[in-house]
Amino acid sequence: MPSAPTPATEVRTDAAAAPRKASRRFDPHRFGPLLGLALLLVVGTALNPDFATWDNLMNVLTRTAFIGIISIGMCFVIISGGIDLSVGSMAALIAGGMILVMNALAGSIASPVAVVAIGMVFAVTLGGGFGLMHGYLITRGRIEPFIVTLGTLGIFRAVLTWLADGGAITLDNSLSDAYGPVYYASLLGIPIPVWVFILAAVAGAVLLNRTPFGRYVQAIGSNEQVARFAAVDVDGVKLLTYGLLGVCVGIATLLYVPRLGSASPTTGLLWELEAIAAVIVGGTSFKGGEGRIAGTIIGAVLLSVISNILNLTSIISVYLNAAVQGCVIIAVAFLQRRRP
């Protein structure tokens, strides 16, 4: 942290934080991502009437669920001033690991449902473990989060590729049938992954805005030294943010696996960038200190709506798909920019 830990800094931070909080309610920039999403929905419906059908919207929300749930965890890490580049590789390794565990258990445990349940617990535990390992290396090992997670980005994917022998790890058919509903079934017309996504979002918002932990995360992100002087257990809180992100990756993965029933070296490719983009597009400061769960959710949905619209139309060359995505991301970021 560049600023010296003097009382003056503390006063300044407090003073800056207070009016910002007060002005939040009236800040039109806060609604930038929502405005962008609303515009995209109008454009999408105008280009192809099928866009506005319930089935299509549920398709989009279901496929957003993975990135969305990960970006909720990522939001905490970024607000605390950290970063995690490994989430895509981590998801791939958890997916491969849980499939191998489930396939191995299928022989000894008769009930496929029990096997799947064990697999799910394994996924979340493994994710949490990986996250805590990151946190430990970052806080106790004093290594930059960028480097730690860049390292594990390579490690996780390489281990998966090795386990898969370069091919794919596929779930046994009997388990696939038992597990399939976790992705494909619906409750009250809304697919299960979307329900989990909604629950995770509500839990994330409560945790960030209504608990001491959430306040500590924001305090550390806006000024780590000050937080330390205010007797916040900086290392402990940081460790937990990475653990929390790991758990989110685990949950996202246990929803992902039943979709294709397999993990391959291309699983979760570039998820880290999508999750980070969702967080930043949603109005969280890349420098940390301030962020919003609601914005993050909108950011994640917005990113998948863009590619959905591009798939539903063919007005521009497919070679330019990524360019359209890039333009929308920059435009939305502009709408929600902070004034200096």
Binding site: A164, G166, G167, P265, T266
Partner: peptide, 10 residues
């Protein structure tokens, strides 16, 4: 071996 096809190559 980074994906199925190159896995086969190796």
């Amino acid at each position: 071996a980074t994906h199925g096809f190159t896995g086969g190559i190796v």
